[in-house]
């Protein structure tokens, strides 16, 4: 634990009968870090998280949460006091309102957060007595998050925390997650939304078919992969062959991908960007929307999973 690693698994395998849900996944998350497991539905995100939570037994590989194996009874007993859990759905008595649920859950822990403070933090004060089944989807998610936080966890697992949440609620949830990170909590969340992973996480593991297909910080992922080259906008009809000859010593290819939009393949060094800018300036051409060497996370996601991105919301 001295190295700051809070959650770790290596070569994790989770099988349901003959179906392999998680197929040799490794990941690591530190205290004060937010790790997002990003992937399409059915990629194995929930199976991974629920194995780390102790709900399922791993068929292979090793797991460590705060130094314990969550699948062992002793580990489970120790971890329930130190780990917060937000399930993908449900988990609260349907007839119970947020205040009563928070007070009840607070009673399970020795040193719980104050339930009324949590109500305010998650913006649930106005529905404190409304039964769970009559709360909106966003309110239910915020209550689930509050319940996951009530025991002052050192590690918190959030399964699709912003799914079905309105924009205002998403802002609240993001603020709470970033507050947890500042407090040194290790946050592991799943999402199938790229924008959420990009906004919330320090580190992202992209999962597909139970395997980690990419792993790194958002910046690393966006900068890695195939060379992204330089894209820019200018007036239509520029002589791309002349431009290519002017900015490259090696064979550079410049294409007009759409009228007035250009793509320079190959390296995206400052020298090349400068040469490009000079060439355009000498001819009095405009230059806009310059992007060098960085793909959006969405492009990385598409290239590593080889499929369409999911919509903005579930």
């Amino acid at each position: 634990m001295d190295d700051g690693v809070a959650v770790e698994c290596s070569d994790l395998v989770v099988r349901y009968g003959s179906v392999v849900a998680v197929d040799g996944l490794s990941l690591q998350a530190r205290h004060g870090e937010v790790l997002a497991l990003l992937g399409p539905n059915g990629a194995g995100k929930t199976s991974t998280v629920e194995t780390l939570e102790g709900y399922r037994r791993a068929s292979g590989g090793t797991l460590r949460v705060l130094g314990w194996d969550p699948g062992e009874p002793a580990g489970h007993r120790a971890l329930v006091r130190k780990v917060g859990v937000m399930l993908q759905r449900g988990g609260v008595y349907p007839a119970m309102g947020p205040r009563q649920a928070l007070h009840l859950f607070a009673s399970y822990y020795d040193n719980a957060n104050d339930p009324d403070t949590m109500l305010d933090l998650l913006g649930l004060g106005s529905v404190a007595r409304t039964p769970w089944r009559r709360l909106s989807g966003g309110e239910q998610q915020r209550l689930s998050l509050a319940l996951a936080l009530i025991g002052r966890p050192q590690v918190i697992f959030l399964d699709e925390p912003t799914a079905g949440v309105d924009p205002e609620g998403r802002i609240t949830i993001r603020q709470v997650i970033s507050g947890m990170r500042s407090d040194g909590t290790c946050v592991i969340l799943t999402t199938h939304e790229l924008s959420e992973a990009e906004r919330l996480a320090d580190d992202v593991v992209i999962i597909d078919h139970g395997r980690a297909v990419a792993h790194g910080t958002v910046a690393e992922l966006a900068g890695a992969g195939r060379a992204a080259g330089i894209t820019f906008a200018s007036q239509p009809g520029i002589d791309v062959a002349a431009l290519a000859a002017a900015i490259g010593t090696d064979a550079v290819e410049v294409t007009e991908t759409a009228p007035g939009r250009y793509m320079v393949e190959g390296e995206s060094s400052p020298t090349r960007v400068a040469a490009l800018a000079t060439w355009l300036a000498d001819r009095g051409f405009a230059m806009a929307d310059l992007q060098a060497g960085r793909q959006s996370l969405e492009e990385v996601y598409l290239s590593v999973t080889g499929r369409e991105a999911h919509g903005k919301d579930s």
Partner: peptide, 18 residues
């Protein structure tokens, strides 16, 4: 039955209540 259906029993399994 409803507590099981709503995931309450599952959620309580991850608390110190036991």
């Amino acid at each position: 039955g409803f507590e099981r259906g709503y995931g309450v029993l599952k959620r309580l399994g991850a608390t110190p209540l036991g």
